[in-house]
Write a protein that binds this DNA or RNA. Structure first.
Length: 526
DNA sequence: AAAAAAT
């Protein structure tokens, strides 16, 4: 079966071909003919299997270019998803000349009204803004022939249902209605059917709800050890791109800050951020300016970002459908991916509920040790060093790391490790290896198990000691990770550091510095 | 219970 076997018009097929698509996925193969016939369809298929094209292609096919009315309306649960679907439909409809507009809150309504006035065959939007535009008479839906609920179960959930009903009232009864999602709980489906006429339910591979390309793991870990456990695992995994999901907006802020302090190129996204920031973060993540996206469930559904190799559920989702969608951000379009869900002992019940829905067992994983995280970073550090200066003797310096030092080093970035080991080779052994670490602020309280247990404080007292907290495994640092975009910066750092060491008087080591071999200074301190 | 969604 090829796309050309489906009864799509030439201009649509040309766009499909240009996008590099040849063979339709099962959901596309089964729902496109039904939708083209004008049938109402409930389409359920795993994440990342091309549902947008499944409803988008037949919808584009139906559009009459010479008719200036809005002929199709797509409703989405988040603003980013509305933007993404608009982009995808535009791509498939450009040959034909279909005008696709997205409308959503948090950005200028005037601009959106202007765009609608300039012509809109298809509108993709979020509920609140759609209703606002309808009220202002800037959006007329009496010409709509196709109504689509993307992430339909979410749109029909309480919290959205009233708005959805109000919007649907404005759409002619004669319309075609399409509902698509990876999950479709039976009670929600029954609500959806009320808005449809003799719907066909297409459900792909009923046995597996989750995408088979995602390897699913869980780690049982106490709340106060979660953060270290996750960062160590990330060091070992070395994800290309990853998404870390947190339970609340506040939590996402804290996690983002913590990850940045550990040197990850991370940014957070949640509903309290202004829309420009939200869109910028997604764009930067897609453009490899960010390696770790930290998110609430605002990013759980629909977002299609290639290169996401790992999804970390820092907080286990309490809603099992949310789990299915979250881990569906990886393993898309035939790529493989991994998901790791952190479960504290009192949350094991949620794990069972999730497995009950997915009919799939997650594999238990042991937390990575500091030694394993260290070894992983050592490899990266060595690669960097060998690239900077081909000095093999540096390798042996890593063997001098004692147990305490390994524990600390496990929290270093590879750049910092490389810098440190390099400094060992240019100094005589008794003088101080100088590593400047741009430490700015302490880690958020919650990620400080030392303090949680009542051992030692952070902040004020530590600063009074001159900011050296080498014995504290919760040191925090700035610095960056990843060698995609910061090569130049790193080179500068090496130069700067070596230069600084030349005219530097030796520092008197404290006992903990002697024990670990590390000296860490606050930013700007000498 | 949280998050999302209009201002």
């Amino acid at each position: 079966m090829k796309f050309t076997d489906l009864q799509l018009s030439e201009d649509i097929l040309l766009a499909v071909e240009k996008a590099g698509f040849e063979t339709p996925s099962p959901i596309q193969e089964q729902t496109i003919p039904l939708a083209l016939e004008g049938k109402d369809v409930i389409g359920q298929a795993q994440t990342g299997t091309g549902k947008t094209a499944a409803f988008g292609l037949p919808t584009l096919n139906k559009i009459d270019i010479d008719n200036q009315a809005v002929q199709a309306l797509i409703i989405a649960p988040t603003r980013e998803l509305a933007v993404q679907s608009q982009e995808e439909l535009f791509k498939f409809g450009r040959e034909k000349g279909v005008k696709v507009r997205s409308v959503y809150g948090g950005s200028s309504i005037e601009k959106q009204i202007k765009a609608l006035r300039s012509g809109a065959h298809i509108v993709v939007g979020t509920p609140g803004r759609l209703l606002d535009l309808i009220k202002r008479k800037a959006l007329k839906l009496d010409g709509v022939e196709t109504l689509i609920l993307d992430e339909a179960d979410e749109m029909l959930n309480m919290g959205f249902l009233d708005d959805i009903e109000a919007i649907i009232e404005r759409v002619p009864e004669s319309r075609q209605t399409l509902l698509f999602s990876a999950t479709m709980p039976e009670p929600i489906k029954r609500i959806g059917v009320k808005f449809m006429k003799e719907p066909e339910h297409v459900k792909i591979a009923a046995k597996e709800l989750t995408n088979v390309n995602v390897d699913q793991y869980y780690i049982r870990v106490k709340e106060n050890e979660k953060f270290d456990t996750m960062t160590r695992l990330m060091d070992v995994d070395q994800p290309e791109l990853s998404i870390v999901f947190g339970r609340t907006k506040r939590r996402v802020d804290e996690l983002t800050r913590g990850l940045k302090l550990r040197g990850f190129r991370a940014e957070g996204i949640h509903g309290d951020l202004d829309q420009n920031k939200r869109l910028r973060v997604i764009r930067d993540f897609k453009n490899d300016q960010i390696d770790v996206l930290v998110a609430t469930d605002v990013a759980a559904r629909g977002l299609d970002i290639s290169g996401v190799t790992h999804v970390y559920n820092y907080d286990i989702p309490q809603d099992p459908e949310s789990y299915v969608h979250r881990i569906g951000r990886t393993g898309r379009a035939g790529q493989s991916g991994q998901s790791i869900t952190f479960v504290s002992p009192n949350e094991m019940g949620y794990l069972a509920i999730i497995e009950d829905l997915t009919k799939k067992r997650m594999k238990g994983l042991k937390p990575a040790t500091a030694q394993e995280a260290f070894e992983a970073k050592k490899k990266v550090a060595l690669k960097k060093i060998e690239r900077e200066m081909a000095d093999e003797t540096i390798r042996s310096n890593f063997d001098k790391f004692k147990k305490d030092a390994v524990k600390l080093a496990a929290e270093f970035t590879p750049e910092e490790l490389a810098l440190y080991v390099l400094s060992l080779t240019v100094q005589d052994p008794d003088s101080l290896p100088e590593v400047e670490i741009a430490r700015e602020k302490p880690l958020p309280f919650k990620f400080a198990p030392g303090q949680a247990k009542g051992k030692g404080g952070r902040g004020g007292r530590d600063r009074d000691r001159g900011g050296r907290r080498d014995g504290d495994r919760n040191r925090d640092r700035g610095g960056r990770r990843g060698d995609r975009n910061d090569r130049n910066r790193r080179d500068d750092k090496f130069k700067r550091d070596n230069r600084r060491q030349d005219n530097k008087k030796p520092h008197q080591r404290t006992s903990s510095e002697k024990k670990t071999g590390f000296v860490i200074r606050n930013k700007g301190e000498r």
